[in-house]
């Protein structure tokens, strides 16, 4: 059986301590700049904060993974090099990388440091994963959220590294690391700036009939009745019209979040080594609730006890849930 490590989000030092205390096997975090894919105001760590966080986590047996998972644009690579050097100096347990240049730099400059391949690298076949293992010594791949469990099981047999999958949180629709939707509407790039549907470009507009529309950079992404709760305007969860869909429809996906709690035993059986919980932008109480519930479920499954999934299902706060691509090819 795999280790079934629980990898938990740490958007702030407080969230990191919360996740560690709630039983995370590892936490992942980033610096306060474009070097990671959650470059949001008010989130992430200064080098001093990361030093304290590493000490706190290591004292409790928890690993710290540093996300350097964006793509440096030419001329700005130094920022990523410095982040890698700082992370290595502070003793992080692994770097999560996507860019080949960044991977190559760390492999050469900090040999022996673990590299995890970010979901942003979009490695969805054994050959792609083996490329990164062979050249950069990648020890773990975070799989894109587009594969079924039988496909994951097959990949596991053909690669020399560990597998990490997302199990809970935001349900990314597009192949990560290949999406410029946000840059197209806002001028800020997910790949180069670490920004997705930035809050600074979000506006909610109340109309005379009481309805509300959510906008990103002036584009209407969705609209809601007077009694509905308005959702966040993420482009790939928006409502649009097409020539034969004049009524408007969710062209890519409904506002929905990923919850694979029911599939945990199957994922463990398929050889998944680590489970990732999305949500570095979430509150401390959210992190505490989700990590605590998943800790218990994973421990139960590993001990051969039936796991109570009811708590996990309740965590999505009334939001719609999906098992996305993992359950069936029909999702595609």
């Amino acid at each position: 059986m795999s280790l079934a490590e629980l990898i938990c989000p740490a958007g702030t030092p407080a969230a990191l301590r919360t996740a560690v205390d709630a039983g995370a096997d590892a936490v992942y975090c980033g610096f306060q700049d474009a070097t990671n894919a959650r470059n949001f105001p008010g989130l992430n760590f200064t080098p001093a904060e990361l030093a304290e966080a590493v000490a706190y986590a290591h004292a409790r047996g928890t690993k710290v993974l540093l996300a350097l998972n964006t793509y440096p644009p030419a001329g700005k690579v130094d920022l990523w090099r410095q982040a890698a050097d700082t992370g290595a100096r502070l003793g992080v347990d692994a770097f999560i990388v996507a860019d080949m240049g960044v991977a190559d730099y760390i492999a050469r400059t900090h040999p022996g440091t673990r590299l995890h391949l970010s979901v942003q690298a979009a490695a969805s076949s054994p050959e792609a994963i083996r490329y990164y293992c062979a050249h950069f010594g990648v020890k773990r791949v975070v799989l894109p959220r587009i594969l079924t469990i039988p496909e994951i099981r097959q990949i596991r047999k053909e690669i020399p590294c560990e597998i990490e999958t997302f199990i809970f949180g935001n349900h990314g629709l597009m192949v990560e690391g290949r999406c410029s939707l946000t840059n197209y509407l806002t001028g800020q790039s997910t790949n180069m700036d670490g920004v997705c549907s930035p809050a600074s470009d979000v506006e909610y507009k109340r109309h005379e009939d009481g309805s509300m529309s959510s906008q990103l950079a002036g584009f209407t992404i969705d609209c809601f009745g007077a009694d509905e709760k308005a959702g966040y305007p993420t482009i790939c969860k928006g409502r649009y019209t097409a020539p034969h869909r004049p009524e408007g429809y969710y062209a890519f996906e409904e506002p929905i979040s990923l919850n694979l709690s029911k599939l945990l035993p199957e994922l463990i059986d398929a050889g998944v080594h680590a489970f990732k919980i999305e949500g570095r932008q979430r509150s401390k109480s959210y992190v505490r609730g989700v990590v605590t519930a998943f800790r218990k479920a994973v421990d139960d499954i590993r001990a051969g006890r039936p796991a109570d999934m009811a708590d996990l299902v309740a965590l999505t706060e009334g939001q719609k849930q999906t098992q996305g691509a993992f359950e069936t090819k029909k999702w595609r």
């Binding site: 690579v77 996507a98 860019d99 240049g101 290949r178 180069m192």
Partner: peptide, 12 residues
């Protein structure tokens, strides 16, 4: 689609 964003990656 290969994300050749910078000089280090291009050199690699």
């Amino acid at each position: 689609f290969m994300n050749a964003y910078n000089e280090v990656t291009i050199a690699w």
